[in-house]
Design a protein around this nucleic acid. Structure first.
Length: 601
DNA sequence: TTAGGGTTAG
């Protein structure tokens, strides 16, 4: 049936008006379904080549993580200008692909287009290293791109994220600025907070001419980061008004200080909860190994209709990895698959790390093999994962493959390689790699590398060489290194050396229950029962004074936790029986390996 | 009368 003309006309006008309105706000559109409709209309009216519409469309597509479509829109712009290039550069940076942004930057230069202040502002937002910021700063100076306060503000922010040396540069810029605004002061306050200069930050906060929410939140964060929760809460109460960031800052402060009760009370009472707020709470529960609470909150977040983003995924996954909460990690992974969220390298790396640390090496390996663009971090995580689970040879193979694919190892890679050798008893190989890291890769060994080598030599029974390296290294040995030596003494029944090592450990701080337990076993193996009794007495004193480290494993939705001297688990007798059985079995086939200390108590 | 920008919490 045909509609009367007078009815059809207003409908057409309102559709056009609606479309025009949508085009004006196109770059802010983050709803994929709505964007799909607009995308179709834009192509229908051939507007995708319009120099004003195309960048907006690219921006919206990048917000909805449709980078392939964004690139295809860019490719159809007849002769892209600096603004079009900037929009795609920003899109890449927003989607955690700074390498592609740099490639595009080079392409822009080859096309004869000069970057403008916007180009550098986008790169400053993504930059992490001091040298990179200095390079941009030099370009900005050379081309005199200081048209307004945005550029120096951006430089101050980027510099102050590069540690103390960077902050000194930021301060120099601040001092010579003729015109400062509230953002300049805010950037300086957050910079001071980052380098731990809370007193100076507070001074600047008190001196600044005007304050908005950001200033209050930045100084609030300063007190939270310093662990001064009562001062932080006093500021929180004193603020003229609070937004979701203020609430989240205080909540994360309580959570980090172990006060989950107050964190939860505030979380329940905050007027508006956004993705970050939920992420803070879920990650905090996960970090503390409180699986049930973390998962319950995760479901509530999903029910509230919130969708994960890169930040929340990485945060929850790394918290799950820390405590080995496989079930929560898997839930996040399933959500990613279900929502067809495009997994970048960052997320894939976080997933691999979570699966490695939760013991699902196969899943980690599967994801590792499907990453489109592996970076050094991906290789490092996988090498560490293999090393951690005793697959020393496989870790070394992967290291060789990584080099074949053109990646240069860094100091983190070598920690993985050396620990792979030490966990698999590959003494010769370990010595070889320790040597080549200096000669071939010009990487100066750090305390961690010496630690791996001392552990490797000690486990392998080369106790004298281990002690020699300990004397020669240019660092003071820490608790980890002394503890690994104590373990080596235990393995090779070196009673006198063990006593020396324990003396050093006691000097370093409050006794660690595990070490006395190990010493008592060394005495027991040597048949010195008087000393066994003494060591056990020390152990009881230590264990009652101080919470010792715990191991945990999640089985059938339940978290089981174990500490030294712990017999609280309902199946404790069976567990220790199994450990003893395994140790006896191992002593026949591999006399140098001990799974865990047998219970003496 | 049409574009893109800087600061705070995960």
């Amino acid at each position: 049936m045909q509609m009367p003309a007078q009815i059809r006309a207003p409908s057409f006008v309102s559709t056009r008006r609606f479309f025009q309105q949508k085009l004006a706000d196109l770059h802010k559109c983050n709803d994929l379904n709505q964007l799909r409709q607009l995308h179709a209309l834009i192509y229908k009216f051939n507007l995708h080549k319009d120099p004003f519409v195309a960048p907006k469309l690219i921006s919206a597509l990048s917000l909805c993580r449709q980078m392939e479509l964004a690139v295809s829109v860019f490719d159809q712009i007849p002769s892209p200008n600096v603004h079009s290039f900037n929009t795609l550069i920003k899109a890449y940076i927003r989607n955690s692909e700074p390498d592609k942004a740099l490639e595009l930057f080079r392409e822009m230069r080859w096309s004869g287009i000069d970057p403008d202040s916007y180009t550098y502002l986008f790169f400053l937002k993504a930059s992490t290293g001091l040298n990179f910021v200095k390079m941009i700063h030099a370009h900005v100076e050379k081309c005199n791109l200081y048209s307004d306060v945005f550029m120096p503000n951006s430089l101050i922010d980027a510099y102050s994220k590069c540690g103390l040396t960077g902050f000194i540069e930021a301060k120099m810029l601040f001092d010579v600025m003729e015109e400062r605004d509230v953002v300049t002061y805010n950037s300086m306050i957050s910079g001071l907070v980052k380098v731990g200069e809370l007193t100076e930050a507070k001074k600047m906060f008190d001196e600044m001419p005007e304050r908005d929410w950001v200033s209050w939140n930045a100084i609030l964060d300063g007190y939270v980061k310093a662990g001064e929760m009562s001062a932080a809460f006093a500021i929180f109460e004193k603020m003229p008004s609070r937004n979701v960031v203020s609430w989240s800052t205080v909540i994360s402060g309580y959570a980090k200080n172990g006060d989950m009760e107050n964190a939860k009370i505030l979380f329940d009472n905050m007027p508006v909860k956004n993705l970050v707020a939920w992420t803070i709470m879920i990650s905090a529960y996960a970090e503390k190994g409180l699986a049930k609470e973390a998962i319950k909150l995760y479901h509530q977040m999903e029910d509230a209709g919130l969708k994960l983003d890169d930040g929340s995924i990485v945060s929850i996954l790394s918290a799950s990895a820390e405590s080995g909460l496989l079930r929560l990690g898997k839930k996040v992974h399933q959500s990613i698959i279900r929502s067809r969220y495009k997994c970048g390298t960052l997320i894939s790396n976080a997933l691999i790390d979570m699966y490695c640390k939760s013991g699902s090496l196969n899943m980690a390996w599967q994801i590792f093999n499907t990453i489109e663009r592996k970076d050094l971090v991906s290789w490092n995580i996988m090498i560490h994962g293999l090393a951690m689970h005793g697959h020393g040879q496989k870790a070394l193979c992967l290291f060789e493959k990584m080099k074949e694919e053109g990646f240069a190892p860094d100091e983190v890679t070598f920690v993985g390689i050396l620990s792979a050798c030490s966990h698999s008893g590959l003494v010769k190989e370990g010595l070889h790699y320790f040597h080549t890291m200096v000669t071939d890769y010009k990487t100066e060994p750090q305390l961690e590398h010496y630690g791996c080598m001392i552990d490797l030599l000690g486990r392998g029974g080369h106790l004298n060489e281990a002690f020699r390296l300990l004397d020669e290294m240019p660092f003071e040995p820490n608790v980890v290194i002394w503890s690994s030596l104590l373990g080596a003494c235990r393995m090779h029944n070196a009673v006198e050396l063990a006593e020396e090592v324990l003396d050093q450990l006691v000097k370093l701080g409050p006794g660690i229950a595990g070490n006395f337990s190990m010493l008592s076993n060394i005495y027991a193996a040597a048949g010195d029962w008087g000393s066994v009794a003494n060591a056990r007495l020390q152990l009881r004193k230590t264990a009652s004074k101080r919470a010792s480290g715990a191991s945990s494993i999640e089985l059938n939705d339940e978290l089981h936790e174990f500490t030294v001297m712990d017999k609280s688990h309902p199946k404790s007798d069976r567990i220790y029986q199994t450990i003893n059985g395994l140790n006896q079995h191992l002593q026949r086939f591999a006399p140098n390996v001990v799974i865990a200390e047998s219970p003496c108590f």
